[in-house]
């Protein structure tokens, strides 16, 4: 019962989220391409949604722009590039690799390397501690004497 209510509440919103039928391209293959492109582009107003998921005015304008360019025969890459040129890296939901975003991508690797270095240094230290210096002749003699005692 609850699930049904939940579905009833959500269904109209889901239908809205993908854009109105009037906005869609008549060719299903092109529409699918436009949706794939749109899902990679951030809605600059809501920031955590793609333009395909957002009901913001700007997202609708960008959806329309993507569809026009797809219909005009542009490649997916050209369409994304067109919007990237105007809105910058932030519009891409998958951040590209360049010198500005390099720290972002490199951080997990750096943390891993740092951890590995820490482990290696620590192991070397314990190893150095575990191997004591060999006994001197006097020490050996004293040990032998102690061992001889009952």
């Amino acid at each position: 019962m609850r699930a049904l209510l939940f579905a009833l509440v959500l269904a109209p919103q889901l239908a809205l989220a993908v854009g109105r039928p009037s906005e869609m391209l008549p060719d299903p293959a092109q529409e699918a391409r436009a949706q794939t492109i749109g899902r990679e582009l951030r809605c600059m107003v809501c920031q955590n949604q793609s333009i395909e998921d957002s009901e913001a005015d700007l997202a609708r304008d960008l959806r329309r722009l993507v569809r026009e360019r797809v219909a005009a025969g542009e490649s997916d890459q050209a369409v994304v590039e067109h919007i990237h040129d105007r809105y910058g890296d932030f519009v891409l939901l998958r951040p590209p690799f360049n010198w500005v975003t390099a720290p972002l991508w490199a951080l997990p690797v750096l943390v891993l390397l740092g951890g590995a270095l820490g482990i290696i240094v620590n192991r070397r230290r314990t190893a150095a501690r575990a191997a004591p210096a060999p006994l001197s002749p006097e020490e050996r003699a004293r040990l032998a004497a102690l061992e001889r005692e009952p």
């Binding site: 107003v45 005015d57 105007r86």
Partner: peptide, 13 residues
């Protein structure tokens, strides 16, 4: 009127 120039400028509000 259409907001096209806005997109050209990367406008978001």
């Amino acid at each position: 009127a259409e907001g096209r120039a806005g997109i050209e400028y990367g406008l978001y509000g």
